[in-house]
Design a protein around this nucleic acid. Structure first.
Lengths: 134, 134
DNA sequence: CTTACGGGTTCCAGTAACCGGAGGGTCAAG
DNA sequence: CTTGACCCTCCGGTTACTGGAACCCGTAAG
């Protein structure tokens, strides 16, 4: 398979696949003409990484997951630890975003949004104050 | 004020303040010895930007907010539009993360996490399947 | 006077995870 | 023989900083 086929099969952009090779996530072979040659195992790994990335794992976490995937003797606890650590990070991120959201939504709501210059959003950013509601 | 004082006053790291000058967010003066000299207006802007960043606005959005802040004749609607657009983005991000979280939490829960190799998380990443619950 | 120290300065490189484009080779079809 | 769709490598840019090297400044102590 050429890189274009691999892209189609894995759902990843061609550029991304080249990048993944560059950083050593995959090691496709080469044809006589210099084109990359993807085996079905390569496609498998690409798909695996694509799914992991879509769940928010970093590239380095994907690298670990791949090695866990390839290590048929590893304990499921290893995988679970990685995943639940990542889950905690997601929870943290969600909480941060929700805090932001609350403050911002409150400000937007209080802003008339008309053609007059008075604006609670700007006032808040300029004057400060830790509380988003009084 | 020196950059160290400005850092203390605004809560931003020294490095970040230099960076903000480099990209033209602020324009502090210079003393005879080459040190940056921060006016109270500079501190104000730094604090403004720090608060905007903490609400998740990008640097470019901060730049716009700053100009809106300095334009005393702008309509509050301009600010509100920017803020509510940003709010939408936050909502989107939260939704994405929650979807991730659901899938991942489900997998983690189903993984025994013991010393045996069988692991639904890896299986799912390897075998695929769009649904996170059957 | 020298030394040390805690500021400040510049510039360079690196981070995460790619994307876009230039410039050029390859292959199958018409 | 040319066209067009692929493929290749290499370079630069993205976001918002952060760390480090190498060097200046000002003051206080020995």
């Amino acid at each position: 398979m050429t890189i274009g086929d691999a892209a189609e099969a894995s759902g990843l952009p061609v550029k991304t696949i080249r990048y993944y090779e560059e950083i050593g996530l995959i090691h496709p072979g080469r044809c006589a003409n210099g084109y990359r040659e993807f085996s079905s195992a390569d496609i498998y790994k690409l798909t695996f990484v694509a799914r992991s990335r879509s769940l928010g794992f970093t590239i380095e976490e994907c690298r670990t997951l791949l090695s866990l995937y390839e290590d048929r003797s590893r304990a499921s606890a290893d995988v679970r630890n990685l995943a639940s650590g990542h889950l905690d990070q997601i929870d943290l991120k969600i909480a941060e975003l929700q805090a932001m959201r609350r403050t911002l939504a409150d400000l937007v709501e209080r802003c008339r949004g008309d053609d007059r210059p008075d604006c609670p959003i700007i006032d808040r950013l300029a004057e400060g104050g830790e509380e988003h509601t009084a």
